[in-house]
Write a protein that binds this DNA or RNA. Structure first.
Lengths: 329, 329
DNA sequence: CATAAGCACTTCTTTATCTCAAGTGCTAAT
DNA sequence: ATTAGCACTTGAGATAAAGAAGTGCTTATG
């Protein structure tokens, strides 16, 4: 069993290491704890025995193990209030009514990257609640026109299409058909409805129905696309633990290629998820903290990626605060 | 004056250094030149005297100076044919008719980043030839609607607006007015036309004309926005000359913050512009090669950013090839 | 018996020294 | 004009020594 004093020591070590990035020795702790370094040392040995601390070499100070961070996060950490300065920056964004929701989200996480020096990620999708509102076509020339599609929550997709060999009549007929048949359909059901209900009918009326079908299929499909934003990637280069160019490159490449799978871990449910070290899909020395948000317009995940010795308390609070503001907006 | 043999040696040194990233010694050159290393050495000394070569320390091999690269680029380099493999990858993109122009551009430069390991940049704007085609509104609820604006070349912009306190009538009146008065106007003249011709009139008819005016002003303004894409940034970490994390961070931060000014140098005219070392605004050890493209839909700049010892011949040809394909599309 | 003091022992870090390889510049010979 | 030969310079790498930080263990103590 872990004693109260051991908890206190573990907490101090984690906090000290997060702040200083250097192995923590018994002397650094005994000052704040009012006991001798020898006592601290024996407690440290016990904590190592329990698996919460590690040494980098036989005579080094202690570093939190993955289990150590985990225990800290689950049991010892207490939320840290957002500083007035940080709060102000975030409020400036959320109180700006000119900004669209998705801009608010992106900007607020940019702020987080700025103030924390971690990398932040937004992964958003249009909410399932979006339904098709209207399809419009605008002819540009004899051979091309633009299809504009809009949802009831105000999302717009469009595509310029080559209509050589297709008469304006036919296109109009198709659009009318779509407007009659699938307006009001939730965006993630459009594809199947288009295929099984609309396609058979336009097949009868329209010569080049295959081509037209594909165009609409593509445009509608775009609604279900995710948008991915990654901010503050070069912050990783500021971390003392990543002074090797090779290591940084490896991480940056993963951020470029794998972001989705990194952020969309096996979903644990719960409010805020914290993945430490090996639990992440980036690198054993990294931590990912994420939460999901959901509004009637769009939903998604926001996440902060940083070193294992991340300021957990601060980041958790920032994410919670941002999530609240998104959902209230 | 520089002799033919000196030119040959300079060229060999530049090419060797580009390939190997290590100072080039006289022995490496004399083999290919059929003369003794002592001869090469005296020629090298002459080239150093002329300012084309440098030493990293008194007894090191030679490295091209900025002037050396410049002389190579201006006088010695001959274009290098694009390899069949590379050509194939690019053609796959340009021959794909599904892809929109801007996607082609972006994708082709992604390819370049992949095959060369340099960073590539696209900076695009809608062409000045775009004129306003049509303004549409789609009401979403009692308090909000979407404005959709489209140009004759098929660009679409949109914005969801809060119309609380404004009647649908008023909005419709405004839209009709805009459609009557400024359809056909080139996109970069819309703003002033909107302000000086439309604004005074809607002022008379519409109560909340200030708010409405701002909405349309913003939407139209978005047409003149530039889009910026930077691909392959983490390639910089692969370069042997940037093994210091600090240096890389500095460069990456400049790429994040300053891309426009880096790529949009004082325009020299000409087809392809090459900026070497101090001539760039990134870093003395970097080179920027760029060219402008122009189609009737959009125009812009494509650029490759890499180390001073860049494969100039290869990159120049790739850019030229891509430019041609963009403009032919 | 938990705590503290003392001390031997480890390991990393830093600094200094040495050696080796690569390469130059100069001189003298062809 | 070219080249062979040689002294000289410098960086890179290896080795060793000294110092700092910190541990674990043993023993003493309230």
């Amino acid at each position: 069993m872990i004693t109260d004093r051991q908890k206190e020591i573990l907490k101090l070590i984690v906090m000290e290491y997060i702040q200083g990035a250097k192995p923590v020795g018994s002397h650094q702790i005994c000052e704040t704890l009012n006991c001798s370094s020898a006592t601290v040392r024996s407690e440290m040995a016990a904590l190592e025995e329990l698996g919460y601390l590690e040494k980098t070499h036989t005579s080094s100070g202690r570093v939190p193990s993955e289990e150590g961070y985990r225990y800290y996060v689950n049991n010892l950490m207490k939320p840290k209030e957002i500083s007035g300065e940080d709060m102000l920056k975030l409020q400036l964004i959320f109180s700006n009514n000119q900004l669209e929701l998705s801009d608010c989200i992106k900007r607020s996480l940019e702020i987080v990257s700025d103030i924390t020096n971690y990398t932040s990620v937004v992964l958003g999708t249009k909410s399932h609640d979006n339904t098709l509102k209207e399809v419009n076509i605008v002819p540009l020339s004899d051979t091309s026109m633009v299809v504009v599609v809009i949802t009831d929550k105000g999302f717009v997709e469009h595509k310029t299409i080559d209509v050589q060999g297709i008469s304006l009549e036919e296109v109009k007929k198709t659009v009318t058909l779509i407007n009659n048949m699938i307006v009001g359909t939730p965006i993630d059901e459009i594809s199947s409805k288009l295929e099984f209900e609309v396609k058979p009918i336009i097949g009868r009326y329209v010569k080049e129905h295959e081509r037209l079908y594909n165009v609409f299929y593509n445009v509608f499909n775009n609604f279900t696309n995710k948008n991915v934003d990654v901010m503050g990637k070069s912050n990783i280069l500021k971390l003392p633990e990543f002074s090797s160019v090779d290591k940084v490159r490896n991480i940056l490449e993963k951020l470029d290629d794998n972001i989705e799978s990194i952020v969309e871990e096996s979903s644990d449910g719960g409010d805020i998820n914290i993945y430490i070290g090996k639990e992440t899909k980036i690198d054993d020395d990294m931590t990912v903290i994420r939460t999901k948000y959901k509004t009637d317009k769009e939903e998604g995940t926001i996440a902060i990626v940083g070193p294992k010795r991340m300021e957990y308390d601060r980041v958790v609070n920032l994410l919670e605060y941002i999530k609240e503001n998104i959902e209230r907006k």
